[in-house]
């Protein structure tokens, strides 16, 4: 898995590529939560290059969402591939997280 983080004026874009599973979710958790703890409270997560996710990876999204919610932050996800989307759906996560089609819509959702 590769994690690429771009800092913009008013938000961070986090791009994930490859597979997010129980062997590397800890690495992602640390990268993401460190940024939130450092005060980055507006995040766009681009999953268009993410081909696989398991519950270990979903757990990190939920932890981030909880932490952001406690600090009035915002997070939007976009670019979910079909298999990844299915995992989010059967978790009920598409209902509780902000999921958009592409980067532009995800960025717009941060300011909505």
């Amino acid at each position: 898995m590769d994690i690429k983080i771009d800092k913009h004026d008013d938000h961070l874009t986090v791009r994930l590529a490859g597979r997010l599973d129980s062997s590397n979710a800890g690495e992602f958790e640390q990268a993401l939560l460190n940024r939130i703890d450092a005060g980055e409270l507006r995040l766009v997560l681009d999953l268009s290059e993410l081909s696989y996710i398991s519950s270990a990876g979903l757990r990190v999204f939920l932890m981030a969402a909880k932490r952001l919610s406690a600090r009035q932050g915002r997070m939007a996800l976009c670019g979910l591939q079909d298999n990844v989307r299915e995992v989010f759906e059967i978790s009920g996560f598409t209902a509780i997280l902000t999921v958009r089609a592409d980067l532009a819509e995800a960025r717009a959702a941060l300011s909505a």
């Binding site: 757990r59 939920l62 909880k66 009920g92």
Partner: peptide, 11 residues
Amino acid sequence: LDASVEERRIG
């Protein structure tokens, strides 16, 4: 599956 972000248990 219907719990909110705040209420949803991790795991």
